[in-house]
């Protein structure tokens, strides 16, 4: 059976790049902190995709990219948790999850 799309390394890379850009876009644009955190997951995991892709295409013997992506997931979660914690305590003060209102310190 002929394969219509021969999915290669570059597809993964482009996918990762797109996700990365979407994540960054989200971080820049989203007002809600939760959305922001989700977008943060996007960008971290985009890098994870890259690693996995490279591991399976370039570094076949060691697969250290795979390990790397695992670590990325772990730390992403840790940061997410921290973010949510902070959101909760901020919400106590501000009664809002709008990131644009968190501008007590500036200048």
């Amino acid at each position: 059976m002929s394969v219509v799309f021969n999915i290669g390394l570059y597809h993964y890379l482009i996918l990762a790049l797109v996700i990365f850009c979407i994540g960054l876009w989200g971080i820049v644009v989203c007002k809600n902190i939760i959305k922001l955190l989700v977008c943060a997951e996007f960008i971290l995991n985009a890098a994870g995709i890259n690693f996995v892709a490279f591991a399976s295409y370039v570094d076949v013997e060691n697969l250290s990219g795979l390990v790397f992506s695992l670590f990325i997931t772990i730390f992403a979660i840790a940061e997410l948790v921290l973010g949510v914690l902070l959101l909760i305590s901020i919400y106590k003060y501000k009664r809002s999850a709008d990131v644009e209102k968190l501008t007590d310190m500036k200048g």
Binding site: L24, I27, V28, C30, E100, T103, K106, G107
Partner: peptide, 15 residues
């Protein structure tokens, strides 16, 4: 003034 206090703007500058 560019130090608006909004973290999104910081990220934007960096990017």
């Amino acid at each position: 003034r560019s130090q608006t206090g909004n973290v999104q703007s910081y990220v934007t500058y960096s990017l």
